[in-house]
Amino acid sequence: MTDPTPRPDAETYADADADAGTGTGTENCPPSARPPRWWRLLGRDRGAAVAAVVLALVFLVALFGRLFIGDRAIRQDLGASLRPPSLDHGFYGLLGTDVLGRSVLARLVEAAGTTLYVAVPAVLCSLVIGSALGMWAGYHGGWRENVAMRVADVILSFPSLLIAVVVLYVFAPSALNIVLILAIARVPVYLRTARAESAELRSRLFVDAARTFGTPSRNIIHRHILPIALPTLLTVATLDFCFVMLTESSLSFLGIGIQPPDVSWGLMVAQGRQYLQTAWWIAVLPGIAIVLTTVSATVLAAWVRLATDPGQRWRLTLPKKRRGARAAVPPEMIA
């Protein structure tokens, strides 16, 4: 435990991931001519590989699961209410039934689709809007930067759950409204991150050079700033899935999340909480689905961050023993 000798691996290869985006320009590049294929990189990292498989599975189920379950997710049978998980009732009875006698397995599959259908657009919207605004603001500086940052302050000063409650009670709680609310609530996070990155980059030599040659600012942002800021932004985005799914679940707890007969994991957890003592499987199984998905997303995000960063990708090609120091989460990640 207390080993006073310096650890050569950590010393040599570790890097302050906290400001990874800033260092890439000058980082001493790896010697290899061609970057190795990404799946080979992935195969070398067991944790990331497992995470990738889990995520792929979730996406496949979300996309194609509905084709197999038919109407089993909504088919009710009040006589079969609250059956515990068992092998006696066929494949769809494997994970038990909920209070309306619907197959929990079928509902988990159906909910995977809805959950991603809400979470993916919400994250993408906030990512695109927030990053674009943030990079624009950070690159130009001055009043633009000030305005953008104050907009972010305004949004952050409203408790997001409160806006959600007001808006969703007033304008029916449709999936589209939920996506919009979640997206708006998360815009400031990307805006701040993107602004910080691009404000730092705009004084760099290569950006200066491009400007001197008369490149329009839109192109500079697109060609020079975006590629460097992107890994950080993508990491934040991946981790945001967690936030979005949990917020959607909290909205369901307050009764304004996804509306039945649609179903999401968050709604299942919220509705099942009443049965925690009598029928644990209704709330626990979708909860596990959320945890598995978000943990996988986090692990994979850390890996993608390394893999998409030309200055750091070489770490992944090292033998396993020596890769210890990669850090998972950038400090920009905000809950």
Binding site: Q76, L100, Y169, P173, G255, I256, P260, P261, Q271
Partner: peptide, 26 residues
């Protein structure tokens, strides 16, 4: 159990050929 009751009613009305959606309100 009102949310579940509404779901049951929605399902039962849909079963006889009606088109029903649920609106849970405060």
């Amino acid at each position: 159990g009102i949310a579940e009751t509404a779901e049951a009613l929605q399902y039962e009305m849909a079963r006889i050929g009606l088109n029903v959606r649920i609106r849970m309100a405060d």
